[in-house]
Amino acid sequence: MTQRPAPRPLSDDALSALLGGQRFGVLATVRRSGHPHLTTMVYSWDPEARIVRFSTTADRSKVTHLRRDPRAALHVQGGDVWSYAVAEGEAEVSEPTAVPGDAVGRELLAIVPAERPEDEAAFLEELVAERRVVIRLKVDRLYGLALDFTG
């Protein structure tokens, strides 16, 4: 019988690197019924502050869930299907950006991928029209595993 590799817990540094190396993850919030609500999200990881930031609109279910119960988790797959990281904590939701270029709008602009919008002013106006908010997940627990499977 062939011995299969055992799961290997990842260090805090390795988990932080995994979060920083990805752009998409699955955000879990808590529905009123207690069941999880899962949604794939683009995110930005700030390892020094231990905050994950997301952009969404004020009318989304996840915003309603988080305003009622701030507990949330982000699941991020590693570079293969055998590794993952989970960031857990409590989230806060900003007020919608109200004036192009306000503090929330600037925070939202920082979440977008490295390539800045060609017309930043138009982008900031669009964020206001969409009633965009920032979800800030304050991470108090990181965990995850890797499975060193080579076959």
Results as ranks from 00 to 15, higher is better:
42 V>M: 09
60 R>T: 14
110 A>L: 03
128 V>Y: 10
81 V>E: 11
144 G>E: 07
135 I>P: 04
58 A>V: 11
2 T>D: 07
89 G>Y: 02
73 A>G: 12
58 A>W: 09
109 L>M: 08
78 G>F: 02
24 F>V: 09
37 H>N: 10
105 G>C: 09
77 Q>W: 09
140 D>Q: 10
102 D>Q: 07
41 M>N: 03
72 A>P: 05
38 L>D: 00
139 V>H: 09
132 R>W: 11
106 R>Q: 15
36 P>M: 07
31 R>V: 00
29 T>I: 06
18 L>P: 00
91 A>K: 07
82 W>H: 15
123 F>E: 12
31 R>E: 14
113 P>F: 01
83 S>H: 02
116 R>L: 10
90 E>W: 01
121 A>I: 06
87 A>T: 04
30 V>H: 05
151 G>V: 02
91 A>Q: 03
118 E>L: 08
136 R>A: 15
148 D>H: 06
10 L>S: 04
67 R>E: 12
131 R>I: 09
104 V>R: 08
70 P>N: 02
118 E>W: 06
67 R>C: 07
107 E>W: 06
9 P>D: 13
67 R>Y: 04
122 A>M: 08
142 L>A: 06
139 V>M: 11
120 E>N: 02
140 D>G: 11
64 T>N: 06
93 V>W: 02
32 R>P: 02
62 K>G: 08
124 L>V: 11
133 V>E: 06
22 Q>K: 12
87 A>H: 02
63 V>L: 11
130 E>K: 15
9 P>N: 03
121 A>Y: 03
6 A>D: 12
125 E>T: 15
106 R>L: 15
16 S>H: 06
88 E>F: 08
144 G>D: 10
48 E>P: 12
7 P>Y: 00
93 V>M: 04
